[in-house]
Design a protein around this nucleic acid. Structure first.
Length: 502
RNA sequence: CGGGGCGUAGCUCAGCUCGGUAGAGCGCUUGGUUUGGGACCAAGAAGUCGCAGGUUCAAAUCCUGUCGCCCCGACCA
């Protein structure tokens, strides 16, 4: 049977599209730039939401919901943000349609809004406008709120999950009495993102601030987690912004301190989006299909009972059900998010076994169990691990008696293995460079470059113009030895990470 | 916003140059044979040929307009 997935080596972006399609994660909708997230894709998002939401709650945050519509004047209040987002806003100008004979529905010209409404590209403005009335005293602080929402950024070119006009995300918006506390919050949430990326997604990330040129409009400082995809390109996977008092000043959010003085509140915001699904795909998946780390897998184990007729199928199904029961009875712990192991029994006997196996491989279910008459003779089963594709990942003759415990252990092993593999892949592709010639040569190869940079916007822009590489982050744990800028030769405090990015 | 391409069955596309009964593969439905890595046979259902005009006895095909989508560049979680 012909492979439906383009190999990574042939065409990486086509491979990505094929994975999204074949694993039934999402598809382009008839609405330009917008995707339909299909059940398999949405299930991944739900797993991410659940884990992240727990981490947010554990760090003292609560959820709320703010309007989708933002009055244009709100967006205009904070100058940098207005400028940063102006070019990609969807604008609502009318509030009514009317039916007109021959023309169908038309926008009712008499229903023009006094003030246009912007579909939120991000919610700082509407939220800080609200915080104005919520914050009066230092006793109201800190205010630690998160919202799960959709946002719209009118992109010219889109790619499923990585860049679409509408996407789902969470945005945390906090208010603090002091600068130090707000700065600490941005670090705390960055650490939450780092943990989530590495411990749940098995996606290693670099952490650190963005350069001035790459930071979020309206932020004083943007911290990020930055991941390397299998083609060596960088993916900004999450950001945590220290917003200073910019929004407090724009929306006049002041509080009375314990000393009785009126002060502007300090702000942070932080977010991750459905883009993470793109990152997940491009970190682990292979030419056989999607690979999902067990901690984010909507289904951990699929059991395929086998048999040529009802006489053979009956016992296979019974054994499958017994194994499923034992798997579900495995004690719930942190690894599984205190939920039972998710087991699915596949009874589609009308399809070829090979077809069934391949289908679950394409969809990335971490462990598949094959259970047929030949196995039952030996009171055993076949256990296939998805992180080792094809037949090589099969372990024959696993005794049914200890199968559940074996699979539990295997799931943990797969999770750890995926992270280790991704980390090794990334670390091999991070290289220091000291001359611009070397830079220009190596940037053509997959991976990140560690180079000295003089800290100016001009140099950053020039490098980007000439090489298409951007500064991904100034890593916290990077080499802090001073040197000379790879481009200008001016003094540099430390090496920064350059890469071509998504 | 610049440059290129494409709209024909659920999907991928052929047919258009040179006008004349609407096609293939995959998928789907039914029946049968199969079944431990993407099976096979048979029968069947399925299309305002993107939309609107025009030319013509006759338009998927030619002409004009229009809408939409995809790809490549500049901007972006």
């Amino acid at each position: 049977m012909a492979e439906k997935i383009t190999p990574r080596g042939t065409d990486y972006s086509q491979w990505y599209i094929d994975i999204v399609k074949q694993a039934h994660l999402a598809e382009n909708s008839d609405v330009r730039g917008c995707m339909v997230i299909k059940p398999n894709g949405y299930a991944l998002w739900e797993k991410m939401q659940k884990a992240l939401d727990r981490l947010f709650k554990d760090t003292g945050h609560v959820n709320a919901y703010f309007p989708l519509f933002i009055p244009k004047s709100f967006l205009a209040r904070e100058e940098e943000m207005a400028e940063g987002f102006a070019k990609e806003c969807a604008v609502v100008t009318h509030y009514r349609l009317k039916a007109e004979k021959g023309k169908g529905l038309i926008v009712d010209p008499e229903a023009k809004l006094e003030e246009e409404l912007i579909i939120r590209p991000t919610s700082e403005t509407i939220i800080w406008n609200t915080y104005k009335s919520w914050i009066q005293s230092y006793r109201d602080l800190p205010l630690l709120i998160n919202q799960w929402a959709n946002v719209v950024r009118w992109e010219m070119r889109t790619r499923l999950f990585l860049r679409t006009a509408e996407f789902l995300w969470q945005e945390g918006h906090t208010a603090h009495a002091t600068e130090a506390e707000a700065r600490e919050e941005t670090r705390t949430m960055l650490e939450v993102y780092r943990r989530f990326a590495e411990e749940w997604m098995a996606m290693p990330v670099l952490t650190g601030p963005k350069s001035e040129g790459q930071k979020f409009p309206g932020a004083v400082e943007t911290l990020c987690i930055e991941a390397m995809m299998q083609d060596g390109r960088a993916l900004q996977a999450g950001t945590s912004h220290f917003l200073g008092q910019n929004f407090a000043k724009a929306f006049d959010v002041t509080f009375t301190s314990s000393e009785g003085k009126r002060e502007f509140a300090w702000a942070t915001s932080w977010g991750v989006s459905t883009r993470l699904i793109g990152g997940l795909i491009m970190t682990h998946s292979d030419d056989n299909g999607l690979v999902v780390p067990p901690r984010l897998a909507p289904t951990h184990v699929v059991i395929c009972p086998l048999g040529r007729n009802d006489d053979e199928r009956g016992p296979s199904i019974a054994a499958a059900e017994q194994l499923a029961k034992e798997l579900r009875a495995i004690p719930r712990d942190e690894f599984y998010g205190y939920e039972p192991i998710e087991v699915k029994i596949d009874k589609t006997f009308d399809k070829q076994p090979g077809y069934r196996f391949s289908e679950y491989e394409v969809r990335g279910v971490p462990v598949r169990v094959e259970l047929g008459p030949k196995d039952l003779e030996k009171q055993a089963c076949v256990v296939a691990r998805r992180d080792v594709p094809g037949k090589e990942g099969k372990q024959m003759g696993v005794p049914l008696a200890g199968a559940a415990a074996h699979i539990d252990k295997l799931l943990r092993e797969i999770q750890a293995g995926l992270l280790a593999k991704a980390k090794a892949f990334r670390d091999e592709r991070i290289r220091p460079v000291d001359t611009y010639d070397e830079f220009k040569k190596l940037i053509e190869e997959p991976g990140f470059l560690l180079a000295h940079w003089d800290g100016t916007r001009e140099t950053e822009d020039a490098i980007q113009q000439e090489t298409k590489a951007t500064i991904r982050c100034i890593p916290f744990d990077g080499d802090a030895t001073p040197g000379k800028c790879v481009k200008s030769g001016a003094p540099s405090a430390r090496r920064v990470v350059f890469a071509r990015a998504y």
